[in-house]
């Protein structure tokens, strides 16, 4: 008896908090049929928001994957100066509000900021352009790949790499032929998390965006904008699009979650 009470209490909690809301948004989106949704999604502003989101993701994700794998490897295999500090800095984006991350980029690249002063003097616009949004996105999604890669590297140990070395492989050959394939699922999993964060980031990019509709808004910013402009159909359509993307991401996470810590 007690078992069932707990089971249904827990399931009920999940249903009210997660499942029902997601169904409701799908229902609301299509309340007036398909064509308003299509119109809303094919508007210039929505297309532009999608393009901007994809552009930022396309730049930020490869940067973080390459850097994440390299840093993870250095942390696990080479002597890093002050490893505890490096670790703390890598985890910093998890302890900081995205708004604070956005603010720190804002302060650094603003008109009176350390880098901003130079940029403004030479007329190189960064703040309030997609470039600042990329910087903020790279910052918030920094830890995901590193945190996935390091434990797997530590688990597989150095024997395989040494075996490759003795068989005549150079350091690069050993990395690309032995190490990288061995950690590939961890890299994939970390990449999925990075994509999810880059696509969905709101607080950090909000602070460094120009806020202009059809130019400076990513999809999440566009959703917020449409709610405030009392345009629910457009808000729901864009929201549902993001929800669908995250559903795909969720399926990916589930598929790779069990593989990431296994070596084969």
């Amino acid at each position: 008896m007690r078992k069932y009470v707990l089971r249904y209490a827990v399931l009920g909690y999940l249903v009210m908090l997660l499942a029902v809301p997601v169904f409701v948004i799908a229902y609301r989106t299509f309340a007036h049929g398909l064509s308003p949704v299509w119109d809303a999604l094919s508007s210039h502003a929505a297309v532009n928001a999608l393009e901007l989101s994809l552009l930022i993701t396309a730049i930020a994700v490869p940067i973080n994957v390459i850097f994440g794998v390299a840093t993870g490897w250095f942390l696990a295999r080479r002597k890093m100066p002050l490893p505890w500090l490096v670790n703390a800095v890598i985890n910093m984006p998890f302890a900081m509000s995205p708004v604070i991350i956005g603010l720190s980029v804002f302060v650094l690249y603003g008109r009176t900021g350390w880098i901003g002063t130079y940029l403004f003097a030479h007329n190189i616009p960064v703040l309030f352009t997609w470039k600042a949004m990329v910087i903020a996105t790279v910052f918030v999604s920094l830890p995901f790949v590193v945190r996935e890669v390091v434990p797997v590297l530590e688990e597989i140990g150095t024997e395989q790499e040494q075996a490759a070395q003795v068989l005549g492989a150079s350091a690069l050959q050993g990395f690309f032929r032995v190490t990288l394939p061995a950690i590939r699922w961890a890299v994939v999993y970390g990449t999925i998390l990075t994509v999810a964060r880059a696509l969905g980031e709101y607080g950090a990019v909000n602070l460094v965006s120009s806020g202009f509709v059809g130019q400076g808004l990513t999809l999440p910013l566009y959703v917020d904008n449409r709610v405030n402009q009392l345009d629910p159909t457009a808000a729901y359509s864009a929201g549902l699009l993001l929800a669908l993307l995250s559903l795909i991401i969720l399926v990916g996470m589930t598929a790779f979650a069990s593989r990431r810590r296994r070596q084969t």
Partner: peptide, 30 residues
């Protein structure tokens, strides 16, 4: 259900806000 747990990590926060506003805001279906 187990994979649903990760939904809040996958769903953009603003969409989570929109979703909650729809269900628990003005004109809430419940």
């Amino acid at each position: 259900v187990n994979s649903l747990i990760d939904l809040p990590f996958a769903l953009p926060t603003i969409v989570a806000g929109l979703v909650l506003l729809t269900l628990y805001g003005p004109g809430s279906p419940i």
